[in-house]
């Protein structure tokens, strides 16, 4: 791994205000706010795939939008190659976005329905002056090849394509400006299983060929595990655990990661369990408990979890977890060593 991170996220927080009701004002209570992100820190290395996984409301999409500056964090800083992206102004900001691209979840909403594929790509290529005017048609063909769309796709409108093909168009649009980083927010979750696999394969191949840095945000643990070098598990706006994909999934060091892993349906009908992986439901994001956010559902909970929020601390090199049970999930031998 490269020593200098291409993106570093440092203590980022983001709140969304809810309406400040008269009752709360009279009672002198602070306005309700959804803490979508709560002191999130991590780094992304050049050329890697970082998976961000979590259930709905965990803040993963908010984080993705902050990374491309569709949203500005309320606290903390996101740095791209050492520069705080919130300080970038107009032209600089557009130059930043040329290098950090995003692909969207909704294959139906992310393309302008009144523009043909060639118009979409042409716009991206000409606004950023990626190619001299005369070379643009050739480049469009090249981009279509890259995402494995037929050449006659250029003259068609989005509604003439299937969901998987639309996501390919979205990928081609992002690639048109030759970015260094691509943030993919739930890229395949709206697609059928067999089509998902096609798009995942495409992404894997493109990353190798173009040396992309990829931030893959999804709720599907199996997909994230499959595509990522490193994975961050989020819950209620916080990172619960972050580490190399293989070791995180082989021996999760946070009870929530373990629950998520146990709950994800696996393809082995001989390995059935009737035990529920995590009881209860997510607490309201308007009213996050003071201690560990997972405390209310955790089967290993003890008193300290309810009052003190565990910090994200190192478990192994590159592997951190936010749990008071430092030895949770540690290999038995390591445990023995510790004792």
């Amino acid at each position: 791994m490269n020593a200098v991170p291409i993106i570093s996220v440092d203590g980022v927080s983001k709140q969304f205000g809810a309406s400040y009701s008269l009752m709360r004002r009279l009672a002198g209570e602070p306005p309700l706010a959804v803490h979508a992100l709560n002191n999130v820190s991590f780094e992304v290395h050049r050329g890697e795939t970082l998976g961000i996984v979590g259930e709905s409301g965990c803040g993963k999409s908010t984080l993705a939008r902050c990374l491309v500056r569709l949203l500005d964090p309320d606290g903390g800083a996101i740095r791209f190659e050492g520069r705080d992206i919130s300080t970038l102004r107009s032209a600089e900001r557009r130059a930043f976005n040329k290098r950090v691209q995003m692909i969207f979840q909704d294959p139906y909403g992310s393309l302008n329905p009144r523009m043909t594929v060639s118009q979409v790509l042409n716009e991206a290529l000409s606004v950023h002056r990626m190619r001299p005017k005369g070379d643009i048609p050739a480049r469009i063909t090249e981009l279509l090849d890259l995402v494995r769309l037929p050449h006659d796709a250029a003259s068609r409108y989005p509604h003439e394509f299937s969901g998987g093909q639309r996501q390919r168009i979205g990928i081609a649009r992002a690639l048109a400006v030759e970015p260094d980083v691509i943030v993919a927010d739930e890229l395949v979750s709206a697609l059928d299983v067999s089509v998902q696999a096609q798009v995942i394969n495409l992404l894997l191949r493109l990353q190798e060929e173009l040396h992309l840095t990829l931030i893959f945000v999804a709720h599907d643990l199996r997909l994230v595990r499959h595509i990522s070098h490193r994975v961050a598990v989020m819950y209620l706006g916080q990172i619960m655990e972050i580490g190399p994909s293989e070791s995180l999934f082989a021996s999760p060091r946070h009870p929530y990661s373990k629950a998520l892993l146990d709950a994800a349906p696996e393809l082995d009908p001989t390995q059935r369990s009737r035990v529920v992986a995590a009881r209860g439901e997510l607490p309201s994001p308007l009213d996050v408990p003071p201690g560990c956010p997972f405390a209310s559902r955790c089967s290993h909970v003890f008193d300290r979890c309810r009052v003190e929020r565990p910090a994200l601390t190192k478990r192994a090199s590159e592997h951190s977890a936010a749990c008071h049970l430092v030895d949770f999930g540690a290999m038995p031998s390591a445990l023995a060593d510790a004792v």
């Binding site: 939008r65 491309v68 569709l70 900001r93 557009r94 130059a95 930043f96 976005n97 040329k98 691209q101 995003m102 969207f104 979840q105 909704d106 909403g109 992310s110 393309l111 302008n112 716009e123 991206a124 606004v127 950023h128 979205g170 649009r173 400006v177």
Partner: peptide, 20 residues
């Protein structure tokens, strides 16, 4: 809708996003 955000992420000016 996402295509408006996509325009922003593509680094297009607000003018272009609104009128185009």
């Amino acid at each position: 809708l996402d295509y408006a955000d996509a325009g922003r992420v593509m680094g297009y000016t607000p003018m272009r996003i609104v009128f185009r």
